[in-house]
Design a protein around this nucleic acid. Structure first.
Lengths: 138, 138
DNA sequence: CCTTTCATTTAGATTCATTCTAAATTGATA
DNA sequence: TATCAATTTAGAATGAATCTAAATGAAAGG
């Protein structure tokens, strides 16, 4: 009767089993622009699934990342952050509160001298202070 | 008789004591374009200073980073990498062997809509495969 | 040169993110 | 419904990085 959720569609497409834990993780990630860490995801999802293991979160994130459905960001030195928006875009991190925002803008990053590398992608990290942290700064 | 080394100059300038361990670490970093990790630095330097502690490496790197004499790169998901070249520049990482190369090129990264952030810097990460890893790839 | 002092070094414990393991569970298919 | 491989699980293990408290030593003044 009811239509398929995005979570279900993604699992089908990737040939992954539709487990309740995966549905919950995918549901939490869908449209999430906060760039959560694995722990953030675990905290949020385990509220609904009290028995769930951290390993399940890590396993699921790894599958999604490997199949190109999730970006793993190394912008935060303390931990990996995840972005369900896999279209090429860039990020802005607040050096104070570590909030990460999207920069949906194209830049010309032509590299005439690529040192013999086969370049497959790029990512710009902008650093600064978010509106909230700016005002609280000494 | 002999002139001051760069390591000595840097410590003087930063008001740090000239300890043999620091001299060795700074000596190892000076002109180093390999973007070593803390462990790389520890391995190299402890050959000459068998008794040295890892904590000394971390302490020294933190002082240098805090005083703007060293860049801490988050480009490698597994660990922090350090760059003694503090002039603004970008990096290229080999997804296979994790080698990091410098990109000494300027890009126009104007951001009209900075989402209310006070932007203090930026850094481009280029991803790809280095000449060696390219040829070994299946 | 000697003394004092405070920065620095040290070994080791600790934290924290992440990965691994092996056994138990469960979705999907027949 | 039975089967089987994928998945989940708890907890151990790993590895980078930080912290601790005590020992050491560089540097400044006498």
């Amino acid at each position: 009767m009811k239509g398929k959720t995005r979570a279900q569609e993604i699992c089908k497409e990737l040939g992954l089993k539709l487990t309740p834990q995966r549905m919950a993780i995918l549901g939490y990630l869908d449209g999430n622009i906060a760039h959560p860490s694995a722990e953030d995801i675990y905290s949020a999802v385990s509220k609904r699934f009290p028995g769930m293991s951290r390993a399940t979160v890590y396993n699921t994130l790894a599958s999604l990342r490997d199949k190109g459905k999730l970006l793993e960001l190394t912008i935060d030195p303390a931990k990996k952050r995840y972005d369900p928006d896999t279209k090429p875009h860039h990020h802005l991190i607040c050096l104070e509160c570590k909030r990460v925002s999207d920069i949906d803008r194209m830049f010309d990053l032509e590299l005439p001298d690529s040192l013999g590398y086969d370049i497959t992608g790029n990512h710009i990290e902008f650093y600064g202070y978010c509106p909230e942290c700016r005002s609280t700064r000494t």
